[in-house]
């Protein structure tokens, strides 16, 4: 018993954990990666493209941290730049046009923090995704697979269904950042992790997410098989809704959070 919140933080960040690329390549058929935001660059921290789940064409987008140290540098450790969010939005708009559902895999310590990111409008890029995702006329599922780091994670998580892996975390600030603000001591991150209520179990309890996905057999064929089935079934359910129901359901998912009980 008693897995602490900080144990989850460490597990969520573990380099051996499956990344978005593993999920995408293990669950979807004929994945074709599509690159670039058509305006500035291709951000390797976000991978996206088209694929099939069973017979159903889908757009898949994932924040990719990279598989090893060298790969991680290439992918900016999964910290997207504005062009990454703009690529994601381009692919989501494309999905809307062709009536494909969207599946997002979220795994980032946060949006890239740098001079270039600010010059190219990191805040604006995230804001635009939040706005546009809310009314995207196609079903959207987002799954936080590792770290759900603040606005940089939310920018791919305005979805009809938001799920988290059992050991994933989702937080407004890193526990280290919180500890240094609160106690001027980043070493008290474990305590901060506790008070931030950043685990999947807390997020479910607080009504922020819809479901916690078991990590039993994580990364095995059986694991991906079961998860793929679940995604496919959920997409079919969402596709059966009218467009108005679908968009109202997504709006209400976020609208209710922090609405006072009167």
């Amino acid at each position: 018993m008693s897995i602490t919140a900080y144990d989850r933080v460490k597990t969520a960040r573990d380099i051996r954990r499956p990344t978005a690329a593993n999920y995408i390549r293990s669950m979807f058929l004929d994945f074709i990666e599509l690159h670039g935001d058509r305006s500035y660059a291709d951000d390797r921290a976000i991978m996206g493209g088209i694929a099939r789940i069973g017979d159903m064409p889908v757009t898949v987008i994932g924040i990719e941290k990279g598989q090893n140290t060298k790969d991680r540098i290439l992918h900016s450790f999964g910290a997207p730049n504005p062009e990454g969010y703009r690529k994601a939005l381009r692919l989501m708009k494309q999905a809307e046009k062709f009536h494909r559902p969207v599946v997002c895999f979220v795994d980032t310590s946060g949006a890239y923090c740098g001079i270039g990111a600010e010059e190219r409008g990191q805040g604006q890029a995230i804001a635009e995704n939040l706005m546009e995702m809310m009314t995207l006329k196609t079903p959207v599922i987002s799954l936080v697979i590792g770290e759900g780091g603040s606005g940089g994670a939310l920018a791919l998580s305005v979805a009809n269904k938001v799920w988290m892996m059992e050991n994933a975390i989702y937080s407004v600030i890193s526990p280290e950042g919180c500890a240094s603000i609160l106690w001027k001591d980043a070493d008290r991150a474990a305590e901060a992790a506790d008070v931030l209520k950043l685990t999947a179990q807390d997020s479910l309890y607080n009504g922020i997410i819809d479901e916690v996905i078991s990590e039993e057999n994580l990364g095995t064929e059986a694991f991906y098989f079961a998860l793929r089935d679940k995604i496919e079934m959920t997409l079919r359910e969402l596709s059966a809704m009218t467009m108005e129901e679908l968009l109202d359901q997504r709006y209400e998912h976020f609208r209710k959070i922090g609405r006072p009980l009167v």
Partner: peptide, 22 residues
């Protein structure tokens, strides 16, 4: 975002953006 309200405050970004979009 207000750190002391954790994810509740993060989610206000999506909530307000949705209302702005409508």
């Amino acid at each position: 975002a207000r750190m002391q309200e954790g994810l509740f405050s993060l989610m206000q970004m999506a909530k307000t953006s949705g209302a702005v979009k409508r």
